[in-house]
Amino acid sequence: MSKRHIVVCMKVTPKPEEILVDPATMLIQREQARSEINPPDMNAIELALQLKDQSDARLSIISMGPPFFEPYLRVGLAMGADALYLLSDRTFAGADTLATTYVLAKAVDRLGDVDVVICGEESSDGATGQVPPGLAEWLGWPLVSLAIKAELNRSGTQIIVTRDSHGRAEVKSSLPAVLSVKSAANQPRFMDFDLKEEAFEQVPLIVWGPDDLDTEPDQVGLKGSPTVVTGLREAEVRERRRQRLEGPIDDVVHQLIEILDPYLRTP
């Protein structure tokens, strides 16, 4: 049996509290915010590492994004991944789900021998779990979403996934396949200190652009995105009474019960 090849899709996201929007271009100003690995992708790489532990697989990280992603993604190498691919080009910027999944799929296609692609459940900067099904569709592979555990069968032709969607289910899928991992499904391992130096200093970062991926110029980035932002405004929030209940806690609680009383079912 040849070595299995697992790919993890990771991205780097700005910390939610620190995001600003450029009112002229209506684009997120990522540079203003500190970044982190998209937290759900830590669960994705952990699940991938578990598969690697079981089956002696090769593990590659792919990410579409700007060069500043590199040091964050190297954490994935220090956790135990073997290779790192950054899909990066000016023309890739401003991609919606369709254009993002196109580039990711092109990279998986170029790698050629991939058995499983593993994504996080969703990215924390606004997108909403549409990349895993979209990527599966481009590749023409089955999708198993919300995975919490997975195991390759002995011959490596199938994967058995435990997923959690309003209950546990055990699902068998043919390979190759795309998985998304339920957020917080596992406890991501720490960096391996023996790997750290190599991960940060020796493993090369492979950058793939349009020529390497053979992407069509009108299918990437803003150009390849069928959705357009046509307006941006501040959200209106409903006016509330904003009354404070003050006093010792037992008084406050009684005031509260009086307010609640008409709404509470009689005991």
Binding site: T101, G129, E137
Partner: peptide, 24 residues
């Protein structure tokens, strides 16, 4: 509807149709 199954279906369908998908 943006349920678990709805998200998976919409995500696949939008790519198959090569169309835009505005989520949530």
């Amino acid at each position: 509807g943006a349920t678990h199954d709805g998200r998976d279906l919409a995500g696949r369908l939008a790519v198959r149709m090569q169309t835009g998908l505005n989520a949530d």
